[in-house]
Every structure is written in C-alpha cells, then in structure tokens.
Amino acid sequence: MLSEQSAATVRATLPVVAGAIGEITERFYAGLFAARPELLRDLFNRGNQAAGTQRQALAGSIAAFATYLVDHPDERPDAMLARIAHKHASLGVTAEQYALVHEHLFAAIVEVLGEAVTPEVAAAWDEVYWLMANALVAIEKRLYEERGGGGLREWEVVGRVEETADVATFRLRPADGGPVPDFRAGQYVSVQVELADGARQIRQYSLSAAPGSPLRQFSVKRVHGGAAPDGEVSNHLHARVHVGDRLRLSAPYGDLVLGEGGAGVPLLLASAGIGVTPMVAMLGQLADRGHEGRVLVVHGDRSPAEHALRADHEAYAGKLPDASLHFWYETGADDTEESHRTGLVDLAGIAVPNGTRAYLCGPLPFMRAVRAQLIGKGVAPADIHYEVFGPDLWLAQQG
C-alpha cells in the first residue's frame, strides 16, 4: 500500500492537511467549475454545492482515507471505497476524470498550504491520491462491467402515486421495450431531469419496491424552502413529471443490501422519514423469500399522515411469521394502535435478539442515536449497516 517514506510524511503532515482540508476542497471545487462549468451544470448536485455538504464529504473522505493508510499500512478501507464507487458509477464517472480532479485538487493544496508543500510532501500526498483514485477506478470498472456498461437509459412513467402531501412514487418501464434489469433491495438509481435553465441535474433515489417487479419504482420527497437550487430536482419531479413523461435512469447501484442466505438470522430495519424507501424494498424481499427469522421494523416520522409507504410497511411485515412493527410519531400517534408510540425512536423497551443484523436509513442524528442504542444492546458494530441520502457526512467518522 503506502510506501514507508510516504507514510512517514503523511503521518507528519496529516494534522496540517486535515486542518486545512475544508478550505482546500472549497478552492478545489471553485477551480474545477471555473475550468469545467458543465460539470456543475450536468454532473454535480448544485444543491449540495450551494449548501457546502459535498465539500464536507470530500474533505472527510480524503482525511479518513489518509488516516486509514497510516494506521493500517497493509490494508485499505474497502467499505468506504465501495460506497463512493457505487455513487460514482451511478453518475457515470469516468477514469479520465480522476486526472482532472487531481490537477485541480493539488493546485488547491499548493494554493492553501504554500511553501509547506515541499517536493517530498507533494509526492507523499500524490501517492495517497492515486492509491484512492486507482482503487475507485478499478471498483467502478467492475461495476460497469457487471451492468453491461455505464450510462443512462430512457424510461417512461406509467404510474404515479401520491403517498403523502410531499412524497410521490413513480413507476416506470423501459422506453425501448427491453427487459428490466434486476436489483438488490436497498439499492438506488440515478435519475436525470432537464431543468428550465437547461441544466441536466442528477439525483439518486432508492428503489421502493421489492426485486422482481416488471417496473422500476422510486419514491421522492419534495424538499421545501432553503436557498435555490436546494430541492430543484424533487420539486421538478413533483410539479412536472406525470404518466407518459420520460426520464433517464442509471442502472441500480448501492452497497446497502441484505446479506445473502441466513433465513433465520434476526434482522432490524430502522428508518426515519423518506429513509423508509430502501427498508420497504428490503421488507418486501424478505416477505417474498419467506424469511423465517425475527424481523424488527422500526420507523420514526412526524405523524402517521407523513409516514410514506406505511401501507406497504404493514402489509409486508404481515406476511412474515415473526415480524413486529414499532412506529414513533412526533404528533398524531394513535394510542389504540399497538405499533404506535409518541416521540422519537427509542429502543429501550425493545428486545433485540443476539446476532441481529441492522440496516439503518434516515437523517444522521437518527442513525447515530439508533446505532448507539444497538451497540448498547450488544449488536456488533460490523453488523450495523447504513445508507445516507446525499453526501455521506458520516463516512469519515464510521470508516
């Protein structure tokens, strides 16, 4: 992995680079988009750029990768790399773009750190970058090969369901009449729309139906408020996309998927808000497989009326022999419903079986709280898996 000489240099300079990485990534994106404005228009999420979350995620991943190489010189953080690679592949990132990123990233490093970037320091961090970049290129190449190549395919909307006031489900079939590729429950697709200003923005949405469906289905929560372009794609989909319209979708990607085998393994599927979408797909897959083990279904929401796909949640759980529902609502919980509770998700009164595998999706504070509770109940950290919608600001912390 990292050479001994570079490891020593990276170890010595990591505090300085990590301390400046936020400014470095800010200048990196500014330089990249000045040179290649089409990348911001048609590839990068303009909402995340405006909010600064993409810069935070990039800074965290670079610092985490370098730290891992220094602390584990004979290993590499494959879980972190796989998560990034799946997102990149869903966007159609190419190997050639890594050289472009390298050019602007290292220009930003020199601009921010100045004379501290000696030839030795530059060489060491160059080695870190290409170890990470080449690993991602290799994983992404394999992902593209498994799916018959990258790129987006045109699909026709054949159904639209208003799940709640702010969540709509879209059902699509291939516009070319070809087959619908299968996927694994928990995965997502990239959806590209053309906005009023001509930008072709891309967002990822989890598939919200169980594998095996003859259609592709995803559910979108409309984002309200915030400075433009926050929520521009979700609002476009809600306001302008109806039956008969066409969208361009990627193949399915994502590494938050149910483990193979283990029909009797106890599972916990925990979600909050629109994080319900991959969990419902997983629950549907378990029902189709006839999963025999214990399944704890946990969900938190503002109210029952805002709980998207609740009917699917309940129906799929009802098909499993040993499943239980535990719903928390901030307001409007029905005291006559055994599954309803008032407040935020709290696992204190729930027995979690030994050997449970947990899958989490929702806002970061929710997932951090649930993860801590599960570890407190004896669930192994390696058995707790998660999905973040948007830039993964937890990735660097979790490793």
Results as ranks from 00 to 15, higher is better:
Y98M: 03
Y98P: 00
L100E: 11
H102N: 13
H102V: 01
H102T: 04
H102W: 15
E103F: 10
E103R: 14
H104V: 00
H104K: 09
L105G: 03
L105Y: 11
A107W: 11
A107E: 13
A108G: 02
I109L: 07
I109H: 04
V110C: 07
V110L: 13
E111G: 11
E111S: 14
L113Y: 09
L113I: 03
L113K: 09
L113S: 01
G114C: 09
G114Y: 00
E115F: 11
E115L: 08
A116H: 11
V117G: 10
V117E: 02
T118S: 06
E120R: 01
V121C: 09
V121P: 01
V121F: 15
A122D: 06
A122M: 06
A123G: 15
A123L: 05
A123R: 13
A124R: 06
W125Y: 08
W125V: 03
D126R: 13
D126E: 14
E127N: 09
V128Y: 03
V128T: 06
V128C: 03
Y129W: 03
Y129D: 10
W130E: 04
W130M: 00
W130D: 05
M132A: 14
M132D: 09
A133D: 11
A133E: 09
N134W: 01
N134R: 13
A135S: 14
A135C: 04
A135N: 15
A135T: 15
A135F: 02
L136M: 15
V137W: 01
V137I: 05
V137T: 00
A138V: 04
A138K: 10
E140R: 10
E140A: 07
E140T: 01
K141M: 10
K141H: 15
K141D: 13
R142K: 14
R142H: 11
R142N: 15
R142V: 08
L143D: 01
Y144A: 03
E145C: 04
E145A: 15
E145F: 05
E145N: 12
E146A: 14
E146K: 10
E146S: 08
R147I: 05
R147P: 03
R147W: 04
